[in-house]
Design a protein around this nucleic acid. Structure first.
Lengths: 334, 334
DNA sequence: ACAAATTATTAAAACGTATCAAGCCGCAAA
DNA sequence: TTTGCGGCTTGATACGTTTTAATAATTTGT
């Protein structure tokens, strides 16, 4: 009933199991006539290859592991969709792991990946602990960083330049006439937040301003709720001319907080977010934002990983850095 | 280097491979002293079980397949997070498949699942073709429907009552004094859209109104952009007192379209969405919406599936129907 | 027409684990 | 002492595939 094996197919087609395996894996090695005979037997019997047996013998599976920090974040969701795209195209299955920023959970995911003998791992590391990843690589499992630049040359990575992104945002605000600029951000321990601030300061310096004039408003979370609290803080401390947020969710919260207080955007205060999530263009005042090639990030990371797997000899490790893009909308048009 | 097997562990601990397998799978069957000895050998050698070999011999793997229609939709993302939660807790890996509503792609995902010999499949079917799923079940792979009620008693499913949800939304609008109610929806071939409309009509009837008085505004997509177009259509045809949208994305678009035209929400028009996505509470006018227990949906579906796998004898198939919840916010407070 | 070279196919040996019948050992009952 | 018994452990086998060396079939060159 359930399980029809390569032997059954061989018997039906009047060939040996080895030949069936050949039409599966190296069709060009087998004569056209026998190949069609085997293919017919396969479809008549509804045979599907037993992946476990295959990877046991072959020494590697056709799966890759994907470990992200928060699958609920639209950013990572888009990345995951990109990964799934090319993995699926090349016949690979994607095993999903959600670390929730918890390193124990991340560790457990990596163990599961190791048990499944995944061909490779795509990971947005939740911290800088390289040793753990080295242990994975010792097992012959390739690792590619996603949204995190690798510091070592023997390690592939894809990321987006957050410093440039921050600079673009603030340069745009200065160009629009802003004198006093605020930066609403998440925890400064997050690399992305720190890099974007650095970019903001660079833009100020480039315009001949004092980088220290940037009004920093640090929040513990990067949600819309936190953004609203940030707006209250800004209202209390005196409004700046422009606000740059480390995140679209924060920006949407700030927007709402300001509007509630009767502040008009962009007339009274200009506003820029980051990520260009779908909702940035759906809010009451559409949001100027920094777009990142999220989907592409996932695609390229996967291509890099599979290239490393398929051509271990000729593969050249790459640390790819994408450039972000400024999307101007109503929140800065005045 | 890479690969240390159960035999190496056995040699190190001075026992037979069979015993090592026992401490892995039935620890209670082996004497405490040898067990600790084996466990030490395992950690000293950094042994991790070869999942493929294990499932080849055991006849089933510790993976489940998850096939969703659109991983980019926050609704499915939340579901996936719930699935990952309990799967990870029980030591299962989740293989992700994104069908994009394309039945060929869904088919390919199911093939990948079959090759991996997943223990079971969680699927939000993109159409009503039961035959394809029957073929999966013939292979001994259990299937649970997610966000889709099963019509047959030999099939588990979890879903949320969309008729009730639609009724709640419109009853709330009527209670708020609405005379003329519009329903902005996606393609009517989508079950969820049809069910929610049915609920809306039921609420009208319950209030002594003519169900046919519901002004239906069908769109081809369920995005914010489509919502904005719907708002234009409503403005052209004469505004209703209230608008019920099949989707929060549509509702956010409608909100934006109305505000741009100077229509005030909720003073001039009341508005209700569906799904209660995070952004419903982050928009300029916060959105009244129908909340679904998305995360729980994924959790329960997975529990059902794993119960079916682990206790094939005693498992009772269930078709679970959750109830939605009305979340009242500014868009209907007047 | 015969050897050589090429192409197609086969048989058998792994891959790493789970399982199960059989064996071992020490101890209580006879 | 013998027998029986129960708890632990072992050894051998099978799971379904890939791979390699060897054999058979076919073509080519002379």
């Amino acid at each position: 009933m359930g399980s029809v094996s390569i032997k059954d197919v061989a018997a039906r087609a009047g060939v040996s199991p080895g030949t069936v395996s050949n039409v599966l894996n190296r069709p060009e090695k087998v004569a056209a006539s026998t190949r069609t005979r085997v293919e017919r037997a396969i479809s008549e019997l509804g045979f599907v290859r037993h992946g476990s047996a295959s990877s046991l013998r072959a020494g590697h599976s056709r799966t890759i592991g994907l470990s992200v920090i928060d699958i609920g974040n639209p950013f990572f969701t888009d990345v995951a969709a990109g990964v799934e795209d090319v993995a699926s195209d090349r016949g690979y299955a994607v095993i999903l792991g959600n670390s929730s920023g918890d390193r124990m959970k991340e560790q457990r995911n990596l163990l599961v990946f190791a048990e499944q003998r995944v061909r490779g791992v795509l990971i947005t590391p939740s911290d800088e602990d390289q040793a753990r990843l080295d242990r994975i690589k010792e097992r012959g499992i390739n690792v590619v960083f996603v949204d995190h630049p690798a510091t070592r040359p023997d390690q592939c990575s894809v990321a987006v330049n957050d410093v440039t992104g921050g600079a673009m945002a603030v340069a745009h605000l200065i160009e629009g006439g802003a004198e006093r600029v605020a930066y609403v951000t998440g925890p400064t321990s997050i690399r992305q937040c720190a890099d974007r601030r650095q970019g903001a300061e660079r833009a100020l310096a480039a315009a001949g301003r004092d980088p220290a004039s940037l009004v920093e408003v640090p929040m513990t979370a990067m949600t819309a709720r936190a953004g609203q609290q940030a707006a209250e803080k800004l209202l209390a401390e005196g409004l700046p001319d422009a606000v740059f947020c480390a995140n679209d969710l924060l920006a949407l919260g700030v927007l709402r907080g300001l509007m509630h207080a009767g502040v008009r955007v962009p007339d009274d205060v200009a506003l820029v977010g980051y990520d260009d999530i779908d909702f940035a263009s759906a809010s009451a005042v559409t949001l100027t934002s920094i777009r990142q090639p999220t989907h592409r990030l996932g695609q390229v990371a996967t291509e890099l990983l599979l290239d490393e797997c398929d051509n271990p000899g000729s593969h050249a490790h790459q640390q790819i850095m994408f450039q972000p893009e400024l999307i101007v909308r109503e929140s800065t048009r005045n």
